[in-house]
Amino acid sequence: MAYGLPATGVAGSAVGGPDGGSGALIYGRLAGVDIDAFVAVNAARWDRLDTLVRARRRTGAEADELVQLYQLTATHLSKVRTSAPDPTVVTRLSGLLARARGVIAGAHEPAWSDVTRFVVISLPAAFYRARWLTLAALAFFCIVGVATGMRAVGDPELLAQMGTPSEREQYANELFEAYYSNSPAPDFAAQVWTNNAWIAAQCIAGGITGIFPVYVLVQNAVGVGMAGAVMAEHGQLDLFFALILPHGLMELSAIFIAAGAGLRLFFAWAFAGPRTRSRALAEEGRAVFTVAIGLVVVLGVSGLVEGFVTPSDLPTGVKITIGAMVLAAYWIYTIVLGRHAVRDGETGDVRAEHAEDTVAMAA
Rank of each mutant, 00 (worst) to 15 (best):
A178D: 14
D187P: 03
V192A: 15
E174T: 12
N182A: 13
E167I: 05
A189K: 00
A172I: 01
Y215D: 10
T209C: 08
V218Y: 08
A190Y: 03
W193A: 15
Q202D: 07
C203K: 02
N173G: 01
Q170G: 06
A185N: 08
E174A: 05
A197M: 15
A178G: 06
A172H: 00
Y171A: 04
V214A: 11
L175H: 05
T194R: 15
L217G: 09
I199W: 10
P184K: 14
A201F: 10
E169A: 09
F212N: 00
A201E: 02
S183G: 01
A185I: 01
N173E: 06
P184S: 12
Y171D: 04
Q202P: 12
A205E: 01
A200Y: 01
P186Q: 06
Q170I: 01
V192M: 15
V192T: 14
Y215A: 13
P213K: 05
W198Q: 13
V214Y: 00
V192C: 12
T209H: 03
A189M: 12
C203G: 02
N173R: 07
Y171N: 02
N195M: 12
A200H: 02
L175C: 04
N182Q: 11
I199M: 06
T209E: 08
V216W: 04
G210A: 09
T194A: 15
A197L: 14
L175D: 11
V192E: 14
T209P: 03
Y215W: 10
D187V: 14
G210S: 06
I208Y: 12
G210I: 05
A178S: 09
Q191S: 14
V192W: 06
V218W: 01
I211Y: 01
N173S: 05
T194P: 06
W198S: 13
A201D: 06
